[in-house]
Simulated scan of single mutants.
Amino acid sequence: MTADSGVSEKAKAVLAEIAAALERYIAGGEGWTIYINKMGLAQEERQAIRDCLGQGGIRINLEKSDEPAEWLESGVAGVWYGVFYDQSRRPLLETIEVGRFPAIAAAQPEDMTGGLDALRQQLVEL
């Protein structure tokens, strides 16, 4: 950790990457994912990043899946904390995603097709 701000150079670099990704997203809609637990950051550095970004009020849960996940909005609009779990709810992967919402949380075309088929069947049965 540095003496002046208490935030390490590695944490500052991640925050700068997030800022650059958010700038790119605003300019052209390009989302970005940082695999935060794969970066060799100490727990204090990861916490410093979270502290700097703050916490928003939105939580997205993906529960009906072999790999459940959740995303929390940070205090910076367009920046999301993501955690992917194994079937025992142990964290497998932690991400910071930049975008309107986490891309994997969006409805997938095959799921929409399945939903449409189910709705059509229900309409036939009415």
Results as ranks from 00 to 15, higher is better:
M1C: 02
S5P: 02
S5L: 12
G6Y: 01
S8I: 02
E9N: 07
K10S: 11
A11D: 07
K12V: 11
A21Y: 11
A21Q: 09
L22E: 00
R24D: 10
Y25F: 12
I26W: 15
I26E: 15
A27E: 14
A27L: 09
A27Y: 06
G31Y: 07
I34E: 04
N37L: 14
G40C: 08
L41S: 01
A42V: 10
Q43K: 10
A48R: 01
R50T: 09
C52A: 08
L53V: 15
G54T: 05
I58S: 14
R59A: 00
R59I: 06
I60A: 06
N61V: 07
L62C: 01
E63C: 07
K64N: 10
S65H: 13
A69H: 03
E70D: 08
L72K: 01
L72Y: 01
V76H: 02
A77C: 09
A77L: 15
G78Q: 03
V79W: 08
Y81P: 08
F84V: 11
S88I: 14
S88L: 13
R90A: 00
R90W: 00
R90P: 00
R90I: 01
E94W: 08
V98F: 05
A103D: 09
A103E: 10
A105Q: 02
A105C: 09
Q108L: 04
Q108V: 00
E110R: 12
E110M: 13
E110G: 06
G114K: 01
A118N: 11
Q121P: 13
Q122L: 10
V124A: 14
V124E: 07
L126K: 08
